[in-house]
Amino acid sequence: MNRKLTQVLRAQPSTDGAGVAIQRVAGFEQRGMDPILMIDELRSEHREDFAAGFPPHPHRGMQTLTYMKHGGIIHEDSQGNRGEIRGGGAQYMSAGRGIIHSEMPTQDTLGLHGFQLWFNLPAAEKMQAPRYRDLPLGELTQGAGPGFTVTAISGEWNVSGMQSMVGPLQELAAQAALADFNLDAAAELTLETGSGESVMAYVYNGSVDADAVNHSRRQLLLFGEGEQLTLKGGSTGAGLLVLRGRPIGEKVVHYGPFVMNTEAEIEQAIRDYQSGQFAA
Protein backbone atom coordinates (compact mmCIF):
# COMPACT_ATOMS: atom_id res chain seq x y z
CA MET A 1 0.00 0.00 0.00
CA ASN A 2 1.30 3.43 -0.92
CA ARG A 3 1.48 6.02 1.84
CA LYS A 4 -0.93 8.93 1.51
CA LEU A 5 -0.18 12.50 2.48
CA THR A 6 -1.83 13.31 5.82
CA GLN A 7 -0.54 16.75 6.76
CA VAL A 8 1.62 19.61 5.50
CA LEU A 9 3.59 21.81 7.91
CA ARG A 10 5.25 24.99 6.74
CA ALA A 11 8.59 26.05 8.20
CA GLN A 12 8.37 29.32 10.11
CA PRO A 13 11.00 32.10 10.06
CA SER A 14 12.83 32.30 13.39
CA THR A 15 16.21 32.97 14.98
CA ASP A 16 18.40 30.85 17.22
CA GLY A 17 21.87 30.91 18.71
CA ALA A 18 23.27 34.44 18.60
CA GLY A 19 20.64 35.66 16.16
CA VAL A 20 21.09 33.16 13.31
CA ALA A 21 18.23 33.35 10.80
CA ILE A 22 16.53 29.97 10.34
CA GLN A 23 13.39 28.31 9.03
CA ARG A 24 11.92 25.95 11.66
CA VAL A 25 9.46 23.09 11.81
CA ALA A 26 8.89 22.17 15.47
CA GLY A 27 7.37 18.76 16.11
CA PHE A 28 7.69 18.15 19.84
CA GLU A 29 3.99 17.35 20.13
CA GLN A 30 3.25 16.82 16.44
CA ARG A 31 1.52 13.57 15.58
CA GLY A 32 3.37 11.75 12.81
CA MET A 33 6.85 13.17 13.51
CA ASP A 34 7.97 11.01 16.45
CA PRO A 35 10.96 10.43 16.93
CA ILE A 36 11.92 13.63 15.03
CA LEU A 37 11.56 16.66 17.30
CA MET A 38 12.58 19.57 15.10
CA ILE A 39 13.94 20.50 11.68
CA ASP A 40 15.82 23.77 11.20
CA GLU A 41 16.98 24.97 7.78
CA LEU A 42 19.83 27.51 7.73
CA ARG A 43 20.10 29.24 4.38
CA SER A 44 21.59 32.60 3.46
CA GLU A 45 24.13 34.11 1.10
CA HIS A 46 24.67 36.97 3.57
CA ARG A 47 27.25 36.25 6.27
CA GLU A 48 25.64 38.71 8.68
CA ASP A 49 22.64 36.34 8.89
CA PHE A 50 24.71 33.58 10.50
CA ALA A 51 28.17 34.96 11.42
CA ALA A 52 27.46 35.00 15.17
CA GLY A 53 26.71 31.28 15.05
CA PHE A 54 25.67 29.17 18.00
CA PRO A 55 27.92 29.97 20.99
CA PRO A 56 28.29 27.43 23.84
CA HIS A 57 24.94 26.11 25.07
CA PRO A 58 23.77 22.93 26.85
CA HIS A 59 21.67 19.93 25.79
CA ARG A 60 20.25 16.89 27.55
CA GLY A 61 18.00 14.01 26.51
CA MET A 62 18.18 14.28 22.71
CA GLN A 63 20.38 13.90 19.64
CA THR A 64 21.33 16.42 16.97
CA LEU A 65 22.37 15.90 13.38
CA THR A 66 23.82 18.85 11.45
CA TYR A 67 23.98 18.38 7.68
CA MET A 68 25.67 21.02 5.55
CA LYS A 69 24.87 21.43 1.86
CA HIS A 70 27.08 24.51 1.49
CA GLY A 71 29.50 26.32 3.79
CA GLY A 72 31.45 25.14 6.82
CA ILE A 73 30.68 24.61 10.52
CA ILE A 74 33.03 24.02 13.48
CA HIS A 75 31.79 21.98 16.45
CA GLU A 76 33.42 22.10 19.90
CA ASP A 77 32.06 20.60 23.12
CA SER A 78 32.67 20.07 26.83
CA GLN A 79 33.83 16.49 26.20
CA GLY A 80 36.86 17.80 24.30
CA ASN A 81 35.53 17.01 20.84
CA ARG A 82 36.26 19.33 17.94
CA GLY A 83 35.18 18.78 14.36
CA GLU A 84 34.87 20.77 11.16
CA ILE A 85 32.65 19.87 8.23
CA ARG A 86 32.19 21.55 4.88
CA GLY A 87 29.66 21.29 2.08
CA GLY A 88 28.07 17.84 2.03
CA GLY A 89 29.26 16.64 5.43
CA ALA A 90 27.36 15.89 8.64
CA GLN A 91 27.96 16.02 12.39
CA TYR A 92 26.18 13.79 14.90
CA MET A 93 25.88 14.42 18.63
CA SER A 94 23.99 12.53 21.31
CA ALA A 95 23.61 14.85 24.30
CA GLY A 96 22.70 12.03 26.67
CA ARG A 97 22.92 13.13 30.30
CA GLY A 98 24.41 16.49 29.39
CA ILE A 99 26.85 18.29 27.14
CA ILE A 100 27.77 21.88 26.27
CA HIS A 101 28.65 22.57 22.65
CA SER A 102 29.05 25.34 20.12
CA GLU A 103 28.62 25.44 16.36
CA MET A 104 30.28 28.31 14.55
CA PRO A 105 30.67 29.07 10.82
CA THR A 106 34.19 28.78 9.44
CA GLN A 107 35.89 32.08 8.67
CA ASP A 108 35.81 31.46 4.92
CA THR A 109 32.10 30.68 4.82
CA LEU A 110 30.36 33.48 2.93
CA GLY A 111 27.15 31.58 2.17
CA LEU A 112 25.52 28.85 4.24
CA HIS A 113 22.92 26.19 3.53
CA GLY A 114 22.35 23.36 5.93
CA PHE A 115 20.02 21.69 8.38
CA GLN A 116 19.97 20.78 12.04
CA LEU A 117 17.62 18.03 13.09
CA TRP A 118 16.72 17.04 16.61
CA PHE A 119 15.89 13.40 17.40
CA ASN A 120 14.33 12.23 20.63
CA LEU A 121 15.97 9.68 22.91
CA PRO A 122 13.83 7.09 24.73
CA ALA A 123 13.69 7.48 28.50
CA ALA A 124 16.05 4.51 28.99
CA GLU A 125 18.78 6.28 26.98
CA LYS A 126 18.42 9.91 28.05
CA MET A 127 21.04 9.68 30.78
CA GLN A 128 23.68 7.77 28.84
CA ALA A 129 27.11 9.25 28.16
CA PRO A 130 27.31 11.92 25.43
CA ARG A 131 28.68 10.92 22.01
CA TYR A 132 29.95 12.80 18.95
CA ARG A 133 30.92 11.87 15.40
CA ASP A 134 32.00 13.68 12.22
CA LEU A 135 30.82 12.36 8.85
CA PRO A 136 32.54 14.15 5.93
CA LEU A 137 30.95 13.89 2.49
CA GLY A 138 33.35 11.15 1.43
CA GLU A 139 31.98 8.83 4.13
CA LEU A 140 28.32 9.25 3.14
CA THR A 141 26.68 6.72 0.84
CA GLN A 142 25.78 8.13 -2.57
CA GLY A 143 23.88 6.66 -5.48
CA ALA A 144 21.72 7.42 -8.48
CA GLY A 145 18.57 6.03 -10.03
CA PRO A 146 16.44 6.97 -13.05
CA GLY A 147 16.11 10.75 -12.80
CA PHE A 148 17.35 11.15 -9.23
CA THR A 149 20.39 11.10 -6.97
CA VAL A 150 20.49 10.23 -3.29
CA THR A 151 22.87 10.68 -0.36
CA ALA A 152 22.14 8.30 2.50
CA ILE A 153 23.28 9.63 5.87
CA SER A 154 21.62 7.16 8.22
CA GLY A 155 19.46 4.06 7.93
CA GLU A 156 18.78 1.58 5.14
CA TRP A 157 17.16 2.78 1.92
CA ASN A 158 15.50 0.61 -0.70
CA VAL A 159 14.56 2.76 -3.69
CA SER A 160 13.14 1.75 -7.05
CA GLY A 161 15.72 1.44 -9.80
CA MET A 162 18.78 1.00 -7.60
CA GLN A 163 20.43 -1.35 -5.13
CA SER A 164 19.81 -1.09 -1.40
CA MET A 165 21.83 1.65 0.31
CA VAL A 166 22.90 1.98 3.94
CA GLY A 167 23.95 5.29 5.46
CA PRO A 168 27.09 5.20 7.64
CA LEU A 169 25.43 6.72 10.73
CA GLN A 170 23.75 3.97 12.73
CA GLU A 171 23.73 5.72 16.11
CA LEU A 172 20.41 7.56 15.79
CA ALA A 173 17.76 6.40 18.26
CA ALA A 174 14.52 4.68 17.25
CA GLN A 175 16.01 3.40 13.97
CA ALA A 176 15.82 6.94 12.60
CA ALA A 177 16.94 7.30 9.00
CA LEU A 178 17.80 10.34 6.87
CA ALA A 179 18.53 10.67 3.15
CA ASP A 180 18.90 13.63 0.80
CA PHE A 181 17.19 13.21 -2.59
CA ASN A 182 17.46 15.35 -5.72
CA LEU A 183 14.84 14.66 -8.39
CA ASP A 184 14.81 15.84 -11.99
CA ALA A 185 11.68 17.51 -13.34
CA ALA A 186 8.85 14.94 -13.51
CA ALA A 187 11.17 12.16 -12.25
CA GLU A 188 9.43 9.70 -9.96
CA LEU A 189 10.82 7.49 -7.23
CA THR A 190 9.27 4.88 -4.98
CA LEU A 191 10.94 3.85 -1.74
CA GLU A 192 10.09 1.05 0.64
CA THR A 193 9.02 1.99 4.17
CA GLY A 194 8.58 -0.18 7.23
CA SER A 195 5.22 -0.80 8.82
CA GLY A 196 4.63 1.51 11.78
CA GLU A 197 7.35 3.99 10.81
CA SER A 198 6.87 7.74 10.86
CA VAL A 199 7.71 8.97 7.34
CA MET A 200 8.12 12.58 6.22
CA ALA A 201 9.82 14.70 3.56
CA TYR A 202 11.08 18.28 3.84
CA VAL A 203 11.21 20.15 0.51
CA TYR A 204 14.16 22.56 0.36
CA ASN A 205 14.47 23.16 -3.40
CA GLY A 206 11.96 23.26 -6.23
CA SER A 207 8.75 21.37 -5.62
CA VAL A 208 7.49 17.81 -5.33
CA ASP A 209 4.23 16.13 -6.29
CA ALA A 210 2.66 13.93 -3.62
CA ASP A 211 -0.87 12.53 -4.03
CA ALA A 212 -1.18 14.57 -7.26
CA VAL A 213 -0.70 17.85 -5.36
CA ASN A 214 2.36 20.06 -5.84
CA HIS A 215 4.25 21.15 -2.71
CA SER A 216 6.93 23.83 -2.77
CA ARG A 217 9.94 24.85 -0.67
CA ARG A 218 9.92 24.95 3.12
CA GLN A 219 7.08 22.47 3.47
CA LEU A 220 7.26 19.31 5.57
CA LEU A 221 5.05 16.53 4.22
CA LEU A 222 3.80 13.92 6.70
CA PHE A 223 2.56 10.57 5.42
CA GLY A 224 0.23 7.90 6.77
CA GLU A 225 0.68 4.13 6.96
CA GLY A 226 1.95 2.04 4.07
CA GLU A 227 4.82 -0.03 2.75
CA GLN A 228 5.82 2.38 -0.02
CA LEU A 229 6.18 6.11 -0.63
CA THR A 230 6.05 7.62 -4.12
CA LEU A 231 7.32 11.14 -4.86
CA LYS A 232 7.61 13.02 -8.14
CA GLY A 233 9.75 16.03 -9.00
CA GLY A 234 7.91 19.23 -9.93
CA SER A 235 8.41 21.29 -13.08
CA THR A 236 11.88 22.39 -12.00
CA GLY A 237 12.81 19.26 -10.07
CA ALA A 238 13.11 18.96 -6.31
CA GLY A 239 15.57 18.72 -3.44
CA LEU A 240 14.20 17.09 -0.31
CA LEU A 241 15.21 15.40 2.90
CA VAL A 242 13.32 12.17 3.60
CA LEU A 243 13.14 11.02 7.21
CA ARG A 244 11.88 7.79 8.79
CA GLY A 245 11.84 6.47 12.34
CA ARG A 246 10.08 4.21 14.84
CA PRO A 247 7.80 6.26 17.11
CA ILE A 248 9.04 6.19 20.71
CA GLY A 249 5.56 6.91 22.04
CA GLU A 250 6.67 8.53 25.30
CA LYS A 251 5.63 11.86 26.77
CA VAL A 252 7.88 14.71 25.62
CA VAL A 253 8.60 17.61 27.97
CA HIS A 254 11.06 20.17 26.70
CA TYR A 255 12.47 23.46 27.90
CA GLY A 256 14.85 25.15 25.49
CA PRO A 257 17.72 22.72 24.85
CA PHE A 258 16.49 20.04 27.30
CA VAL A 259 14.15 17.23 26.19
CA MET A 260 12.95 14.91 28.93
CA ASN A 261 9.82 12.99 29.99
CA THR A 262 8.67 14.93 33.06
CA GLU A 263 8.74 18.46 34.44
CA ALA A 264 10.78 17.20 37.39
CA GLU A 265 13.46 15.90 35.00
CA ILE A 266 13.59 19.29 33.27
CA GLU A 267 14.04 21.05 36.61
CA GLN A 268 16.83 18.62 37.49
CA ALA A 269 18.52 19.28 34.13
CA ILE A 270 18.50 23.02 34.85
CA ARG A 271 19.97 22.48 38.32
CA ASP A 272 22.65 20.16 36.96
CA TYR A 273 23.62 22.63 34.26
CA GLN A 274 23.75 25.55 36.70
CA SER A 275 25.93 23.54 39.09
CA GLY A 276 28.45 22.80 36.34
CA GLN A 277 27.81 19.08 35.96
CA PHE A 278 27.40 19.27 32.16
CA ALA A 279 31.02 20.30 31.78
CA ALA A 280 32.30 17.29 33.70
Rank of each mutant, 00 (worst) to 15 (best):
I85W: 11
Q228C: 06
T149P: 08
S14L: 03
G27A: 15
S94A: 04
Q79V: 02
A51L: 02
A26C: 04
Q128C: 05
L121D: 01
T190R: 15
I36V: 14
G239M: 03
R10M: 09
K232R: 15
E48R: 05
G143Q: 07
I85V: 15
M200T: 03
H57I: 04
L240C: 08
P56K: 04
M68V: 13
R10G: 04
L112D: 00
N182S: 12
E84R: 14
I266V: 15
L243Q: 03
L240K: 06
T109K: 00
E156D: 13
D184L: 13
G161S: 11
M38P: 02
V20S: 03
N214F: 08
R246L: 13
L229P: 02
A123D: 02
E188T: 15
D272L: 02
A186T: 12
A201L: 07
P136K: 10
T151P: 10
G61D: 01
V20C: 00
R97N: 04
T193L: 09
M200P: 00
N261K: 10
L140H: 09
L110T: 13
H57R: 11
L241V: 12
N81E: 06
F148M: 08
N81I: 10
G61H: 06
S14K: 09
R43D: 06
M68W: 01
L189P: 04
F50K: 00
M68Y: 13
Q107H: 07
A95E: 00
S164P: 04
Y273A: 00
M38D: 02
N2L: 13
F181I: 14
A238T: 07
Y67S: 01
K232N: 04
M62T: 09
L178H: 08
A129W: 11
N214C: 08
S154G: 13
D211M: 07
